[in-house]
Amino acid sequence: MVLAYQILPAGDKAVNVTFERQVSVAINHQIAQLQRQLTQLAVQGITGFLPAFRTLTVFYEPAQISLKALKATIDKALLDSHQTASSTVRRVHIPVCYDAEFAPDLKTVATKAQLTEKQVIERHSQPDYLIYMLGFLPGFAYLGGLDPQLATPRLATPRLKIAPGSVGIAGEQTGMYPIESPGGWQIIGRTPLRLFQPESEQPFYYQTGDYIHFDVISRAEYDHITAHLADYQVQTETVAETEVQYGA
């Protein structure tokens, strides 16, 4: 079934395909599916996409496709999407070291959750997190699916510098800092991966609609990956949607 939507113009060269105002797995899947479908159709005049929580912004060149034709194309793609809907999703494994040196706020999170630090690490690295949106920083993923017990408010005073690769918690969200940035997230680990590689053909490992899984690594493994970063192959799987261990 196609979820309720509206196509709202956003100026001369874009429309927002807008779904119900809520953060939901179903809406996220519908948006990802629509983007895939339109990409496959390679519609003349569509120039790009920008997915968010409940919208897919579709950029177009009005000199090549009229608004009317664009709307008809989107309507049809959405109608067809339930037939062609892929029941598989992508899961991207991000290695994370939760050692004290990289986890200044692990204790705070554990205290708040009334768990041991080890339990926090287990619970944080257990689920598959869904990427609802990328934004704020290049490659910064708004992830859903954090164990509610791990939810911790932001720091009262944000840090001026958070190291790239840091993994943190803010309220009911968890996420990674792809580049150095100021920020108020509770930092509980760090990945040795460069999450943003502007010089590469593929500057990012993941996109909206993918799932992220944090794999626990030791300090020795962290150092090993850092030393051999160029050879490191990020593990990416295509799995059945039913196999995904989504938390929330």
């Binding site: 060269k13 105002r21 929580f53 409940r54």
Partner: peptide, 11 residues
């Protein structure tokens, strides 16, 4: 209150 969405030039 909005959920964040994509921006466009001239918005």
């Amino acid at each position: 209150e909005m959920l964040s969405e994509g921006t466009v030039l001239g918005g």
